[in-house]
Amino acid sequence: MAIRTRDKDRSRILFIAPAILWLLTFTLFPLLYSLYLSLHGSRFLRVTHFVGLENYRMVLTDYRFWQAFRVTLTFVVVDVIATTFIGLLLALLFNNPIKGIRLFRTLSTIPLLAAPVAIGYICMIIFYEEGGPINNLLVALGMNGINWISHPFWAKVAVCIADVWQWAPFAFMVLLAALQSVPDEMYEAAVLDTVSSWQTFIHITLPMIRHALVTVVLLRTVEAFKIFDIPFALTNGGPGLATRTLTFNVYTTGLRDQNLGEATAISFLLVIIMLTATFVFFRIYRSEYE
């Protein structure tokens, strides 16, 4: 729908110009600058000389890159599957005329807009090995405490729990909104046909909330690739490199080790990985977005 304006194109451009100029200046320009940096050597945060693809070769032969790649991928897969699944379960559970739904919905908005770094720190307190509530409880029950922070496997689990805790409510709210827009007649018809509730779910509910499910999976995939705040706060990337993600590596390589070339090379590889993931996703679910 468009409205006709008397003065033609000139003034229309002025409406979108600020947004486009802003993004060109603060997104496209830094990206090109980053590409330039990734092809150059540097010393004390200053660019020295052109090195071609040398930085990329260094990064791709560095075990720390592949370690961070695996860690990031693990977090993405766990985050997407667990948040979507838990969110869907909660949405189905709360899509019932039971008292307390509105309260739960209100509470669910809290994690969505709470700072991930703050969540990371509170989880550090909760997962603390000597005197944190979880281990205290395990000990009180006669079990051994778990090395949440100092064991590579459990540190990953702790990060995943914190991340899923924050984002499952997002999946829940989106899917609940979708469930509530399913017309009642659909269910009434199913009941008349005496279909089992599992079949109702597969044949009626699922197709109706497909669009919302796809949206949740896509958005969580994209956001999960960016993960940095929670492992930074909760485990500081440790123990060793166990919870160091690609974003974490960009930060340590670029600003702690002051190697601009390799840091920007890592960031470009991250962009390529994310673009590939979202491209594949869009290819599969193109119809949902048209």
Binding site: I20, L31, S267, L270
Partner: peptide, 26 residues
């Protein structure tokens, strides 16, 4: 296309621009 381009900013990892942005601000 313009809307998709603006939307795609959310798909870009912040890590991709953090180093150049730091240098620009410096």
């Amino acid at each position: 296309d313009i809307a998709m381009w603006i939307l795609s900013q959310r798909f870009l990892p912040p890590a991709a621009t953090v180093i150049p942005f730091f240098l620009m601000m410096r």
